[in-house]
Design a protein around this nucleic acid. Structure first.
Lengths: 234, 234
DNA sequence: CCCGAGTCAAGAGCAGTGCTCTCGCTTTGG
DNA sequence: CCAAAGCGAGAGCACTGCTCTTGACTCGGG
């Protein structure tokens, strides 16, 4: 990566990273709303207009942070899923989502909260966004390959529009039965629903320390998806 | 309500409402970020400082909008749940959540997206926030009273911390078995997870028109909660 | 009836923001 | 070696939330 040809190129890459780091620091303490280009430039000891040579607008800086956040979460989940037993890998992946979200609440809010300005996420974000989904699908794929994925008896086959939509997931995990892929689409939303409810304070007054509910939920998910406990035991 | 004694009181109440309406209009078009006190005051033909007599700060205005949004969603769900058959009522309530969210995306984002500033929701919001939860629990209560709620065989009894936390739900729906209440806590998050994923663009590229997935999910929920199709048929 | 107390809209002003443009200086590549 | 491109600095524009003061209005008790 040091093959960045000229000294100016290297300086530019470094400074771009420093800007993102400073912005991320400000994001972590003050939240996305309060992220200010001027404050970032002040922290770096430069003048605010100079920053526009690196990010054309505040939204572009935010977009860069969004992509980095998706990547960081994706990496955390992928790493957590590096467990042999598919059921354990699934649970670890789910726990990794929650742990990363709790460790980086503002970055989580940035990617799974309300879209920040009025802007629809640029196309460049959808690929990093799918990384964690692919990681989860990868676990199911491994389970299917290992024969420990027993599709539940009451799992309905997707039909109609769903039959087409499921194709995207099927391309990513061709060994997983379509009925399970459909359920994965639901569970995917529930995992992030649980984490968002916990982080955004929707559970205060009921499941406030949400550890127990989350554990109970992901155990239920595993059954729902056919990741039976020790059915095949590899 | 017209007993507001003096003319000044009535004028104040009216103007407060007009401010909220104008703000809600701006919210609907530009989103919460771009909601500006000055723009609201401009629309009302008054000067910005005058607005501070009605809302001490921008956050207070936002809080008022949040409460109104919770109330509007709660009312919509309660109205939808006015169906005799509990299963139909449950499905209608879930569909009402999604329909309201799609009709008022920015208001939905305000209450179920990332908490706006760095501020934790004031205590005044938690009661309106629980209104939709109580509506959903009410449907289950009616189902239990009618004998059409058959707790699934594999539903685990809450234990440990969950056994305590479930108490809040039990107080609201004492007739619903605790195992079902636990599952309700999970499903609650999934409903809003599905709606949020759809609204916030997380499903683009997979379940983009999310109608089918949502329908499949809430049907699954009904089974998961023991709201069997025509088990008792009242 | 009337006059002090409380409320009101208005305006000026402060500190902060995103963003643009121009200015010299430095680095780059033909 | 020199024109072109990239760079940081600075001034400036339009906007924001919010505060404070000022003068006019309304209200309710005497």
């Amino acid at each position: 990566m040091n093959a960045g040809r000229t000294a100016r190129d290297r300086a530019r890459a470094e400074l771009t990273q420093e800007i993102k780091d400073a912005a991320r620091r400000q994001l972590a303490t003050d939240g996305a709303e309060r992220l200010s280009l001027r404050a970032v430039s002040r922290e770096l000891g430069m003048v605010s207009s100079a920053l526009y040579r690196y990010f054309p607008s505040r939204d572009d800086l935010l977009t860069a942070l969004i992509i980095d956040a998706y990547d960081a979460l994706g990496a955390a989940v992928e790493k957590a899923a590096l467990v042999e037993d598919p059921l354990d890998a699934w649970l670890a992946a789910c726990r990794a989502v929650r742990a990363w979200a709790r460790a980086h609440p503002h970055e989580y809010a940035l990617i799974y909260g309300s879209p920040v300005p009025g802007y629809s996420a640029p196309q460049t974000t959808v690929q990093p966004a799918s990384r964690v989904a692919y990681a989860l699908l990868g676990v199911l794929q491994r389970a299917a390959d290992g024969g420990v994925l027993v599709v539940p008896a009451d799992a309905a086959e997707p039909s109609g529009v769903l039959a087409e939509q499921i194709g995207v997931l099927e391309a990513a995990a061709p060994g997983v039965p379509r009925a399970v892929l459909l359920r994965t689409g639901m569970i995917w939303a529930q995992i992030f629903g649980l984490v968002s409810f916990e982080l955004f304070g929707q559970y205060v007054g009921s499941f406030d320390p949400a550890d127990a509910l989350f554990e109970a939920a992901i155990a239920e998910h595993a059954r729902f998806l056919g990741l039976g406990e020790g059915v095949g035991e590899r």
